[in-house]
Design a protein around this nucleic acid. Structure first.
Length: 327
DNA sequence: GGTATTTGACCTAA
DNA sequence: TTAGGTCAAATACC
């Protein structure tokens, strides 16, 4: 995949991409080695890292958080480069379909990785805040007997026991149709200030059965009522459909690309596409220890040993060697 | 009767 | 203080 990219890309851009891939892997390596230094080799097991005979605590939260921020920052820069590459490819009079697909896959990989890291980091925070908020609320409500609302809230009404997500992977699409191949369930509608049309709120239908946290907001355009401004928040983790590759190009980090209503689907149609994408993700994820689910597009770290990088076998028997960052 | 949508209440972030 | 996001009871639909 990378070699293909190098062949297809303008020189200066592919050097950038190449550098960022190295930086990313280097950062991941360092993050991993710091973690493994504390934990040795082992597998994650419910809040502790379990080795053969010892239970070690998680790495220090602040260290983990700061490393994660660095990883995300590096990924964002790589993503920016990939976006620029996409612009260059699209500016070409006769852009190669293969090049376009490769760039799409690269961008998708960056998006997914950033999303997973971001959401994973935020998840615990949200849960703890939720619990804290609810505990506080319930205590205060318990002590306020004069409040009928408090009493009913304490007994059964759990409305408001949530924390609004402050950060999530978002992308914006302008389209003339709402359908996008996913099953959504409407959960709210709101009139927006200075807007003629209300905003509708949808969450993935698989929220409860599969825990999918993807949501989207749909609002008619002010000037063109035939088109919708659709904001996707979070990524699908549900099975049954092949999601994000079908998502139109996003303008999240690039002011260059403004979305139009094109729904260019690049859903892999054969084994070759899936294989190449999986391999690319293997490189992104460090080569080993990540389990790819081609159906749900989710990648999960199965072992902490995934952070111990090995040379990755590429197509045609070629090998991706990691540079020596020891110095 | 089960599922989806509507809508007013309630809460948080800014 | 308020706009906007979410919840859940009520309602509609199949």
């Amino acid at each position: 995949m990378i070699l293909s990219l190098l062949l297809l890309s303008p020189t200066y851009t592919h050097i950038h991409i190449y550098i960022y891939i190295y930086i990313y892997i280097h950062t991941l390596t360092k993050t991993g080695s710091e973690a493994t230094n504390k934990s040795q080799r082992g597998v994650f097991s419910g809040g502790v890292i379990r080795t053969m005979d010892t239970l070690y605590p998680w790495p220090e939260p602040e260290t983990l958080s700061s490393n994660k921020k660095r990883v995300i920052q590096q990924l964002a820069e790589g993503q920016q480069c990939a976006t620029e590459l996409q612009v260059i490819v699209l500016q070409n009079n006769k852009p190669s379909q293969q090049a376009e697909e490769l760039v799409q896959k690269i961008l998708w990989s960056f998006n997914q990785t950033i999303s997973m890291l971001s959401e994973a980091g935020h998840h615990d925070e949200v849960i703890s805040q939720n619990q804290a908020t609810c505990n506080d609320d319930c205590k205060s409500q318990d002590s306020s007997e004069s409040s009928k609302r408090s009493l009913s809230a304490f007994t059964k009404d759990k409305r408001g026991c949530y924390k609004r997500k402050r950060f999530a992977q978002t992308s914006t699409v302008v389209s003339d149709k709402i359908e996008d191949g996913h099953a959504w369930r409407k959960y709210g509608q709101k009139n927006i200030l200075n807007s003629k049309h209300p905003r509708s709120y949808f969450r993935c239908s698989h929220k409860h059965d599969q825990g999918c946290s993807a949501i989207k907001q749909v609002q008619r355009m002010e000037d063109d009522t035939q088109t919708y401004h659709i904001t996707y928040i979070g990524t699908h983790t549900c099975r049954g459909q092949y999601p994000s590759m079908a998502t139109p190009r996003i303008d999240r980090l690039s002011p260059i690309l403004k979305l139009e209503s094109e729904e260019q689907t690049t859903t892999p149609s054969d084994v070759t596409d899936l294989d190449s994408m999986t391999m690319w993700t293997d490189v992104m994820m460090g080569g080993v220890g990540f389990e790819a689910d081609a159906v749900s597009n989710m990648y999960s770290c199965t072992e902490i040993t995934c952070l111990d990088l090995e040379p990755v076998e590429l197509e045609n028997g070629l090998q991706f060697d990691y540079p020596d960052f020891a110095s």
